[in-house]
Structure formats: structure tokens, C-alpha cells
């Protein structure tokens, strides 16, 4: 399913003295199979944009096509949209509420109108996808689990409705390095399941560089780049002109270049940079 965003604009409290423009004339397309990063400074409109994608915010002007469904239509079926586009908020473990893990994970599927037995099966499947065993944790309270486990349960709660598109807002915030890697590897793994498209909103350029095949940059509500991580970090000056940062490995590559050691590699992760250095040394 393709997501096509056309001339999307959004203004908070329009036609009042408190008017605040959040998005200005944004157009881009996310293709099925993409892992798209959305980056930008705080207040650049990232959250407003991502919340449009599953109709948590009603479109004011412009259009979003979710496959064949036009989200700008008044009569759009909200539940159908939200079932197709799963959305994981920042610190998702803070939204857990049910008395057992099983019930919490089944909450989504039940809302989307399937029966108890099916919802329970969906919960079991979602939990196993995030690496948890329903027999072990299913009847525990989500609040008894460790932080990392709680986040997995929260992710399971979102993917239990088998969304085709998964939107993740800062999915690794607050985790330690091992926890971060686990979550990102999990997202990668999910892409070989029913999840076809992933959109990651993040401040962390290392993660964007390593895990996304495309990246969109927002700046004060405008889309100022729609490119690949390589294009953004190695072949443009967008980063220098915004509050964004380079991925750590690209920083090292640039340091090397300053000293006359030019590495011919995108250097989007440690492996790529190492290969680039080795290649140059072998010359």
C-alpha cells in the first residue's frame, strides 16, 4: 500500500489570534516496503505530520491517499484507517492500562471488532513476534514487567491488529544501547511479516542512517529534503543549515576527510565506514 501525501498543510487554532502553522504544503510519497525516517528539530511539525497518517488529526487542506482510501474525505472510515496504520507513541509503555498483558495486547484487535478468541490468538501472535511468550507473561500485570519488556508489550499492542504500515515516534527513547538495538532489530524483523512499510520519527541520526532507506527532513513545517540517508548526510548541506546532526560514523568520515583521508563509502554505520577505510588503505 502506497501512502501519497499531497500539498498537506495544517494550522492549529485557525482564524484566531493563536493561529500557529504546523505544516506548510507538504508532498511526498511513501512506497510499500520503505523504511522512511522523518527528522527535524523539535517543533518542526514531525508529530503533526505523523498523526495525520492514521487520521488522529483531521486534514485541513491537502490530501493523503492511503492506498485507495482518501483521508481527506469526510466519510472516511476511521477504524479501517487506524487498523491499517499502526502508531507507536513515544514511551509507549506509559499507555499500558489493562490488568493482564494478554488483555492489553488484545485491546486493539477487540476495538477493531473481532471476537474474543480471535483477539486472544492475535495477542499471542503479536507477543511472540516481539519475543515474548504469552504462556509466560500473558497473565501477568504489565506493570510487573521490566522497562524493556513493557515496551515490547506496548509494541505488541500496536501490531496485534496486523497493520500494514507502522509509524513509530522515537521508538528507542530512554532505552539503554542493548535495548535500543533490540527494538530496532525487532522493527527490521517485523518488516518480513504483515508490516510492509515503516515510518520512524526520530532525533537519533545514527538510527535513521542505519535503519532507513529514505529520509524526509522537516524544518518549520516545510519539507526541505526527501532523499536517502546517503543523499542527506553525504551529498547535501541540509544538515549544516538546520539543527540536525550527522550520524556519528559520518562525523568520523568528515574528520578523516579534513585530514586528507577521503573515504569512498556512505559511512552510515560502523561496518560501512570500516570497509571504506580498509578500501582506501588497500589502494
Amino acid at each position: 500500500m502506497q501512502i501519497k501525501i499531497e500539498n498537506l498543510s495544517y494550522v492549529y487554532s485557525p482564524r484566531t489570534p493563536f493561529e500557529k502553522t504546523a505544516l506548510k504544503d507538504i508532498s511526498f510519497t511513501v512506497n510499500e516496503g520503505d523504511t522512511m525516517g522523518i527528522v527535524g528539530a523539535t517543533g518542526s511539525g514531525k508529530s503533526t505530520l505523523s498523526r495525520h497518517l492514521n487520521a488522529l488529526i483531521r486534514i485541513q487542506s491537502g490530501r493523503i491517499m492511503l492506498g485507495d482510501a482518501d483521508l481527506s474525505q469526510r466519510k472516511v472510515d476511521l477504524k479501517a484507517v487506524r487498523k491499517k496504520v499502526g502508531m507507536l507513541f513515544q514511551f509507549p509503555e506509559y499507555q499500558l492500562f489493562a490488568d493482564t498483558v494478554r488483555k492489553d495486547v488484545a485491546f486493539g484487535p477487540m476495538n477493531f471488532g473481532i471476537n474474543d478468541a480471535e483477539a486472544s490468538a492475535a495477542a499471542a501472535e503479536a507477543l511472540s513476534l516481539v519475543g515474548l511468550d504469552i504462556a509466560e507473561v500473558g497473565d501477568k500485570s504489565p506493570f510487573e514487567l521490566s522497562g524493556g519488556q513493557m515496551r515490547r508489550v506496548a509494541i505488541a499492542g500496536v501490531i496485534a491488529s496486523k497493520p500494514e504500515v507502522l509509524v513509530l515516534d522515537e521508538p528507542t527513547a530512554g532505552l539503554d544501547p542493548a535495548g535500543k538495538r533490540e527494538i530496532l532489530e525487532l522493527v527490521k524483523k517485523l518488516k518480513s511479516s504483515f508490516v510492509k512499510t515503516v515510518i520512524i520519527v526520530s532525533h537519533n541520526m545514527d538510527e535513521i542512517a542505519e535503519y532507513c532507506n529514505r529520509v524526509a527532513v522537516l524544518d518549520e513545517g516545510r519539507l526541505i529534503a526527501d532523499t536517502t540517508p546517503d543523499g542527506l548526510f553525504n551529498h547535501s548541506d541540509v544538515v549544516d543549515n538546520t539543527e540536525l546532526d550527522y550520524p556519528h560514523t559520518v562525523k568520523i568520515k568528515r574528520k578523516l576527510a579534513k585530514r586528507g583521508f577521503v573515504v569512498d563509502s556512505p559511512a552510515l554505520n560502523v561496518e560501512q565506514l570500516t570497509e571504506g577505510i580498509l578500501g582506501r588503505l588497500a589502494e
Partner: peptide, 13 residues
């Protein structure tokens, strides 16, 4: 469960 800085990992490799 810790992760070495990128520079360390590259120097090791």
C-alpha cells in the same frame, strides 16, 4: 550489555 563508541569499534576492526 554496553556498547563501545564507534571509534573504538572501528579501531578494533
Amino acid at each position: 550489555g554496553l556498547e563501545l563508541p564507534a571509534a573504538s569499534r572501528i579501531s578494533l576492526k
